[in-house]
């Protein structure tokens, strides 16, 4: 059975795109067919992690929303990122559906809006046409129509938060919204925690506050900062503790 997984945070810069790309890669590495769609139309970003840029991007989600192409025509097979250091290719497949990077095309969506029904249909069509086992939706921070839509149709919602007072409050809002929209499986992921924190106590405290399971706590990592979104962390640093936590979160997503 296929699963739609949304990755969201109330505030920006929490690590949504990096977490999404890593989870998608881990799951594809387990032999699954995975799609990743960038619904952050006003500030797209996740394509960078998969080595796609404006030069090698032809069709995008924007073209689909304007009726210029079918959604699967805006899907890029980026499975090459899965190739291991030893040169082996796992059997899984990963597709990226990017949002446009052209200022004019971003502006057009912001100015003219679009048919939200198309976005909704697009998610389902992707799953069907590309025969996906998992569709990951990377979102714009905060609550807007796209986010609410993706939360509503998700089987699993991962809410990313930093251990920061502003994130705590924003996460409370998002959790309340997710409950109203009756998301079947809701999990929190804490990112950028200082390594000196007591992770076990932090997990208990956060679970107590929100009544939502914490799927994992990711430490702030120098290697991640150095990577600077230029690649997939789990593949570059497979034995790093962060990669272990990311793999454990991926397992929980698959089991949810």
């Amino acid at each position: 059975m296929d699963k739609i997984v949304s990755v969201h945070s109330f505030r920006g810069g929490t690590g949504k795109s990096n977490v999404t790309a890593n989870l998608a890669t881990v799951i594809a590495g387990a032999g699954k067919r995975v799609g990743v769609i960038d619904t952050d139309i006003q500030s797209p970003g996740i394509h960078v992690l998969f080595g796609i840029d404006e030069e090698n991007m032809d069709k995008s989600l924007n073209d689909y929303l304007w009726g210029k192409c079918a959604i699967e025509q805006a899907a890029y097979d980026v499975s090459r990122v899965l190739k291991t250091a030893a040169g082996e290719m796992p059997s899984g497949t990963i597709y990226l559906i990017p949002a446009s990077l052209r200022a004019g095309e971003i502006a057009r969506v912001l100015r003219e809006g679009y048919d939200v029904n198309l976005l909704n249909d697009g998610f389902r069509e992707l799953v069907r046409k590309l025969q996906l086992d998992y569709l990951f939706i990377d979102t714009h921070p905060g609550l807007n129509e796209e986010t609410l839509l993706s939360i509503t149709i998700s089987d699993v919602l991962l809410i990313i938060m930093r251990p920061d007072r502003q994130d705590y409050q924003g996460t409370a809002v998002t959790v309340e919204v997710a409950r109203k929209l009756e998301v079947p499986e809701l999990r929190l992921v804490v990112n950028k925690a200082l390594a000196s924190f007591d992770f076990k106590a932090l997990k208990e405290r956060i679970e107590g506050t929100y009544g939502v399971p914490v799927a994992g706590i990711l430490a702030e990592s120098e290697e991640m900062i150095a990577l600077g979104s230029s690649g997939i962390f789990c593949l570059k640093h497979p034995s790093h503790p962060l990669s272990q936590t990311l793999r454990s979160i991926a397992e929980q997503v698959m089991a949810a």
Partner: peptide, 8 residues
């Protein structure tokens, strides 16, 4: 039937 997203 979802409302279109307004722009502008």
């Amino acid at each position: 039937r979802l409302a279109p997203k307004r722009g502008g």
